[in-house]
Each structure stands twice: as C-alpha cells, then as structure tokens.
Design a protein around this nucleic acid. Structure first.
Lengths: 160, 160, 160, 160
DNA sequence: TTTT
DNA sequence: TTTT
C-alpha cells in the first residue's frame, strides 16, 4: 500500500489558516499545476489541486506563501466524504501534505503587485494564534535568514 | 510544474472498460489504499482513489485486473468539472494513469471466489472491441506467458 | 528541494541487519526492479538499487523479507563518499527508505524453497539484538495477524 | 515493478551535452538537493545526484540550464556497470530523466554573473549539432516566450 | 567533482 | 553481486 504525491505549482489564492477547537493549526490552499501538453483546442490548461497541511508547517505556509507563490508539495491523496446541508453525500479528494517547499527567492514570488497580498486587511491569518513559539524545531522563525535557497517548511514536530 | 502520483492498492471492483465514439479505449477503476496509521477510534482506514487509463493499457487493465487485485499505478492528478443534470457544477479529482502494474502472480490475486469474476455473465468488458490487435507493442497478448513476475501493462504506443 | 523515490521490486538477497555501536538497527538490501522495456538486444533488464533502512523498520525488514520478496520502498536518494583501503575516493548512491511495504501474502513470497532462508545457519540476522521490544509503536509484532493485506513496516518512532 | 524519482535542486555545473555516434543528443548534469535536516555536527548537507537526459530535452537542458539553475526532474533510477582502465568493475547509479522543469524566471536563475555562462568561450555545447530543428514538438523554440511560468522541457518525441 |  |  503506497500513496505518494509530488507536486510543483502555484497557489491560486492566499492560503487559509484555521485552528481546530483543540488548537491544531491547519492550512488549506490550491495549487495550479500547468499541464505539459495542450488540449485539443490548443490551449494550455492546469489542474487545480486542493491541499491541506497540519501543525507548524501550516503556520509556515500561511506566513510565507501567497497567491501566485511557486511551491513544491510532498504528500498523499486523501479521500473523505460528508453529508452536506441538503442531505447529499459529498466526496472530497485532496492532497494531505507532509511538507511544502517554498521555491521562490524572497521578495520575488507570485503576484504581490501593489503589495496588497500582504496588507493588513488581508484575511488569510484571521484567527492566527499569537506566534509565541520557542522554536526548537527544524524551521527557523525566518526561513529566509539562512541564505537564498528555497525553504523547507516541513515539520514533523508535534507542537501540541 | 510537476504532478506525479504513485499508488499501490487493491481494486474495489472490476474495472469498467468503455470506448469513446472515435474508438479510444478508456478504463476506470478505484484503488483502495490502506492508510499506514489508525484513526482516533482505532481502526485502519483506506483512501479510495478513482483512476482512469487510456488506450491499450486500458484493455490490459480490463483483461487482467479484477476486484481485489493488487495493482501499482503511476500517473498524475487530473481535475475537471462539469454541470450535472440539476445544473450544479461537479468537481472531480482523479488519477490519470500512465501505467498500471499487476502485482500479483496469476491465479492468486484478489477476490475470485467462485470464479464468478471471470464468468461470461460479467459486464466488465461489455462493449469490448474485438481483440484484433496485431500486437507489435510492448505488451504481450498474454502478459503471464513470460514467467511469474509482475506485469507491466503500461503502453506509450499511440494506437489511433 | 525535493528528493522522493518510490520503488517496487524484488530483493536480490536476504537483507543484512546490523547495529551501530550505539545500538541503532540498520538493514541493507538490494531491490531488483525490472525495466518496462527491452534492451536493443531484445532482453529484459533490471536495475539493482541499493537500499538502507534504519531503526525499528530495519528489524521488520530483516524479519519479514527474504531473497525474492516483492517489496515497495518509499525514500530519498542519498549520496556519500569515503576513502577506501587504497586511498581512493569511492562515491556511493543509495536509497534511504522511510518505509518498506511487504507486498506478498504470507507464505507466498520469494524463494524460500527448502525453508533454508529461515534456517538458523542463516547469517542475515547474525548480530541481532534480542527482540525485547515492548511494542508501543505502529507495527504489530506479527504484521500478518491483521488480515491478508500487504504490510506496512514503516516506523517513525525513535526507539533509542 | 515501479521505479519513480522526483527531484528539485540546483545544477552544480553547466550541463554537458554530447551526441552519440548515431547523432542522439544526451546531456549530463548533477543536481544538488539540500537535505531537510542537519547532520550531527549541525550543518546542512546536500545530495549530489547525477542525471542523464536524452534527445530533444537534452538540448533544451543544455540551452536553458546553467550552474546554479533551480530545476525539477522526473525520472527513474538507472544502474549500470563497466570495466575501467585498471580492469576494475565500476558500478554507477544515476537518474535517467523523462522530463526536466526549469523552475526559475528568465534572467533570474543561477550564477550568471557577468553573463559569462552564456559566453561563446563556453564549452557546454562544444560538439553541438546545428540547431536546425523544425520544431513540431511540444516545446517552443523559446520556452520563455509563453509567459512567466516555469518551463517544461520534457519531450517524448523520437527525433531520430 | 559539487548548488543557493 | 543480482530478483521473478
């Protein structure tokens, strides 16, 4: 039983960070991955793949990725289903990421034109927990501090 | 832009083989991939991943895999959407396989109890094209002929 | 920075289990992965890929895999180099496995004809530590106990 | 039998492009992939993974990648061996790429300081064939023409 | 023989 | 130094 996914693509929107009632961080984002071939009508298309990441790396994703950011994802395909408000069963297929790689140099990536993506009217970190982590894990507070290489925001620590 | 998936799991049902109006074979099947961890209520769960494969390998899948067969899949995640009969947009995420590996020795795999899966009342190959292929491609007519190793039913030939 | 490998193949020999001076288990094995195409002289060939796995899963590999066993590996490519006895630098490329999947039903896999592979004259577990694990990890003592599905012998616990 | 590799890293040197006696292009390059963890002595290390790519994409690699370029690779692990001049058998493990992704915006990637990497005194394309391709394949002559997304320089065409 |  |  093997279930392994590797993706490189761009975020279609700023990631959404939430916390479970017990305080576990979870971030959702969608990766647009351009197809390497054209459709019969001749234009290039993309797959839009929903991704989820938990715990500390979720906070890193929310802090360092924006709409348009180029990112790499390693994870597995997760399927689940639930009953919606009309009593209909909805089937969901998404990628649960183990780690996310930020593949752009700082101040370079994505659509941040006008800087609006970083504006305080932004809602991507609405219910953010105060960032009082003592940082004894693999990630730096500022993953850009260490040089100009892409950043590994993976994290296997259990912060809760 | 990278989009790569590798799965090993078991078919939840016999594969479904169809042909497009222009005669292109396409097979659909769902792979159950057991998760390597248990849910909070303590039982092992699985992901049920819809897969599609086209052309000659689709016919091989229909011929050599059954409900319960252990199979390996290499492919990419494909997303698409369509409007259903109620006018609602339905979003689909599935794996488009480049190749499928049959990971069981002949006469060993899956649920073939009573042999019913191979019975002629079976509908898995209902609208089969006559198998008049001259077979100058990488797959043997009988992939089991060559020994007892797992069978590669991948195919990059363009039969149409 | 992404480095991900997925392999399914057969062990060319019984795995070799060793322990570091500090008592950490490490198993080495080679996976023969048949190529999906033939060479110009018409015969099928294989890649022989050296794999390493650490800690508890190393012991599981030594216990449950044999020459000829069909196994799945997830891991990363590791490169290292050392100076050999003639003072020459030797470059090594191998796969460090995060997890290994046993893809054969019990009593079915590999070449165990004559049962010799399990005999006490075997040397695959020569310097085995006594198996006094209290087993509070994800793997059962008997991974076959749970049914007939392939076994996940991955392990993220830190046993030391 | 599955053998799948996905890498994202930086070229340690300009790629080397050669042609076989029958005129088939082949490029070699090494990818440095930084490890997501530190060694016991506290510094970050990398794996240096030798890669090979054939035919048209080999020419694209030679044209668009340089020392320091960030690239994604999909492929398989290949093992081979040969006898060296001292009559000793040498074992080689490398990645044969199906496709390579250029992950940097134009005029941004790698070490091209002084533009010297593109200078005509460069030797990375010494025995280049004249680039008289009629280009009816998936790649544009100028992969940068189509916008600012990463470039897929994969190619399954058989140019010979 | 290594990249940022 | 290779598996089925």
């Amino acid at each position: 039983m093997i279930n392994r996914v590797v993706l490189v693509g761009r975020l279609t929107k700023d990631p959404e960070l939430k916390y479970t009632p017990t305080g576990v961080a979870v971030a959702n984002f969608t990766l647009a991955v351009n197809r390497p071939f054209s459709s019969q009508d001749g234009n290039r298309e993309a797959d839009f793949i929903n991704c989820v990441i938990w715990r500390k790396p979720a906070e890193n994703v929310a802090n360092f990725l924006r709409k348009g950011s180029l990112a790499g994802v390693e994870g597995r395909i997760n399927t689940r289903n639930y009953e919606n408000q009309e009593g209909r069963r909805v089937y969901v297929t998404e990628v649960v990421a183990d780690s996310v790689q930020f593949l752009e140099p700082r101040n370079s990536g994505g659509q941040q034109s006008g800087g609006s993506s970083y504006g305080e009217e932004n809602n991507y970190n609405q219910n953010r927990k105060p960032n009082n982590n003592q940082n004894n894990n693999r990630q730096d507070d500022d993953p850009f501090a260490g040089g100009s290489q892409p950043i590994d925001i993976s994290d296997d620590d259990l912060p809760f």
